[in-house]
Design a protein around this nucleic acid. Structure first.
Lengths: 288, 288
DNA sequence: ATATTTGATAACTGATAGGTATCAATGGAG
DNA sequence: CTCCATTGATACCTATCAGTTATCAAATAT
C-alpha cells in the first residue's frame, strides 16, 4: 500500500464518481479504477459498492475515509512543521552555563529569545567548563557559557562579559573600600576558592593574581557554588576572590572590594561548535 | 512522497546504518540511499547527517521520526479495524488490565459488551499499570484497567471499583475474623506483596497501610500474580495484603480478613485517551 | 600495513503506474 | 421506445523509476 492509493481513495470517496475523481487527480479513469481495485485487494476489503451507474462507500469504506482524512491531514501538517524546524523557527536549544552566568547573561539571553524567537525552546543545565566543552564536542549541548581564555580547537567563541575580580570579605572585616589598596593586605588570610574541577582556568587565574601580589594563598575551602562561598565568607571562614559581576543578583551580607591595578580579568564567553547543524543555533547566534 | 519513503526512513532512523537498514528491508543499500535522498529532496529538508563513518538524525529528522512512527502505527491499526468492520463488526477494542480486574470487572464488561454491543470484538492483555499508560499514550491500547490515584496528563479516567484491603492468612492461622481487630497483630509476620514494578502506586499504598498501623513490614516474597501469592500464603510462607475483591473468583484455601478502620482503599479505574479515534471505544465508554 | 566497513556513484533491468482505445450496461430526453 | 450521453471495466501498450550489481573512496579496526 502506498500513499498514492490513499490519495486516490480520498478523491473517489469524495466525488463518488471515478471519472470526476480521475480528472481531479489528473490521471486517466482506467488507471484510477485499477489503483482502487488494487487497494481493495491489498486490504482484503471492499471499499466501494459499484453498480453500473452509481458508486457508494461500504461501511468499511466510510471508516477508512475518516482515517485517511486524518492521516493525510496529519502528514500535511507534519510537512509544514518540518520546514519550520529546518529553518530554525522552532526547535530546542540545549544551553550549558556556569553558575556565574545565571545573574545577568542567561536571563538576558532568554528574554531576548522569548521576544525575537518565541518558537525556540531551551533546555538549561548548570555545568562546569570542562563538561560543557566535552558535551558541545559530542553534540550533546548546543551553546555553552564558560570562562576560558582560549577555547579548544574546533570550537567558536564570543565573549559576552568582561569582568574584573573582587575580594569578598565579611562586612566587619578590617579592610574596606577606603583603606584597600593592594591584595597583599590579604596575604595572611585563609582563602575560599571555586573548585578547580569546576573551572581549571579560573582557579589558575586566581592563583596568578595572588602570585602577582607577591604571595601564595592559603586555601582552606573549595566550593562549586557562589552562594556557598558567600555564606562561608559571611561566617568568617575566610575571604574569596570572585568575578565582580557576581555582586549583582544576590542578597549579600558580604563586602565586595574590586581589585585595583591588575591586568587580570575574566571573560564569560559563549562557545559553540561551528559544524553544529541545529538550525535554532544559527538564529540564536545572530542575537549574540 | 510515498509510504515506502516513510518506511525506509523509519528503518534508517532506527538502525542509523544504511546497510543494516537495507538488509532489514530486504533491498540493496544503493537503492535505499537513493530513496532517502529523494525523500529529503521531496521534503526540502535534510534528515540525516552522514559523515563517512556515522549516520545521525538532524533535529528535523528527530521530529519526523516521531511523526512517522505515529502515522505508520495508526495505519496498521486502521488495517485491523477495517478487517473487523468488513466482517460486520464495529471494530476491535484492545483492552489492558491488571490481574485484579479479571475477577469481576473485566467479566462484567465483556458480558455487557456481548449483550449491548455484540459487534465489538476485544483483544485482552494483562499488563502492569505503567505499561498500560505507555501503550495507551502510544495508541497501542484503547482501554486500560489500572490502579492509580492520578492519571497522567492527557488521559481520562473513570473509577469502576472502590476496594478495601484484606489481610490474607492461612486457614489455620491464629488470627481469624472474630479475634482480628488491628493490623498490628501481624507486625512480626513475613509479608508477601505484589512487585513494585507491577504497580508502584499499589506497593507504596500497602507500605502506607502498615506504617499507619505502626510497623514496617518484613517483605519476604514478591510476585506479580494473585494466585501465586495465595499459594504462598496457603503454604505458610507469609501473609499478604490485597484488595478485598480478589476474594471472589478463586477456589481459595486461604482466609480473607478485611482491614477495619482504615481510610486506605484502592480504586480500579478505566483509563483511555480522549483523542482515540477507535469507533468501538466511544460505544464502550457509553457502557461504563 | 592490511582487511573490513562505511555511504556514494554508475549503469542496467524489470516491474508497474498510467496512457489510449474500446466495451457493455444504465438511465434520461425526445 | 429509441437515441445518446455517461457510467465503470477491460485489453493492451509504454515510459518511468525502484531496485539491482559492480564498483569507489574514505574511515576504522586489527
Amino acid at each position: 500500500m502506498e500513499l498514492r492509493h490513499l490519495q486516490y481513495f480520498k478523491a473517489v470517496a469524495e466525488e463518488l464518481n471515478f471519472r470526476k475523481a480521475a480528472d481531479r487527480l489528473f490521471i486517466s479513469q482506467p488507471g484510477l479504477s485499477r489503483q482502487i481495485r488494487q487497494l481493495e485487494e491489498l486490504l482484503g476489503v471492499q471499499l466501494f459498492e459499484r453498480d453500473q451507474k452509481h458508486v457508494q462507500l461500504t461501511p468499511a469504506g466510510v471508516y477508512l475515509k475518516g482515517e485517511v482524512d486524518f492521516v493525510l491531514n496529519h502528514l500535511e501538517t507534519t510537512r509544514t512543521q518540518l520546514k519550520q524546524i529546518d529553518s530554525g523557527k522552532i526547535g530546542e536549544l540545549r544551553i550549558g552555563f556556569l553558575g556565574s552566568a545565571s545573574n545577568r547573561v542567561l536571563p538576558d539571553l532568554l528574554q531576548k529569545l522569548n521576544e525575537k524567537q518565541p518558537g525556540i525552546t531551551t533546555s538549561l543545565e548548570e555545568l562546569s567548563n570542562a563538561m560543557q566543552v566535552e558535551m558541545i564536542q559530542k553534540d550533546r549541548l548546543d551553546l555553552g557559557y564558560v570562562r576560558m581564555a582560549i577555547v579548544p580547537e574546533g570550537l567558536s567563541k564570543k565573549t559576552v562579559l568582561k569582568d574584573s575580580f573582587s575580594v569578598v570579605v565579611p562586612l566587619d572585616h578590617g579592610v574596606n573600600s577606603s583603606n584597600f589598596n593592594s591584595l597583599s593586605q590579604f596575604s595572611e588570610e585563609a582563602f575560599i576558592l571555586f573548585s578547580s574541577d569546576y573551572s581549571k582556568y579560573y582557579y589558575d587565574q586566581i592563583m596568578g593574581i595572588c602570585r602577582d601580589a607577591g604571595f601564595s594563598p592559603q586555601i582552606r575551602h573549595k566550593s562549586v557554588h557562589a552562594l556557598t562561598i558567600f555564606k562561608l565568607v559571611e561566617n568568617r571562614m575566610g575571604v574569596a576572590i570572585v568575578p565582580t559581576s557576581l555582586k549583582e543578583g544576590y542578597e549579600l551580607k558580604v563586602r565586595f572590594l574590586e581589585i585595583p591595578n591588575t591586568s587580570q580579568y575574566t571573560e564569560l564567553s559563549a562557545i559553540w561548535k561551528p559544524e553544529n547543524r541545529n538550525p535554532a543555533l544559527k538564529r540564536v547566534l545572530a542575537l549574540l
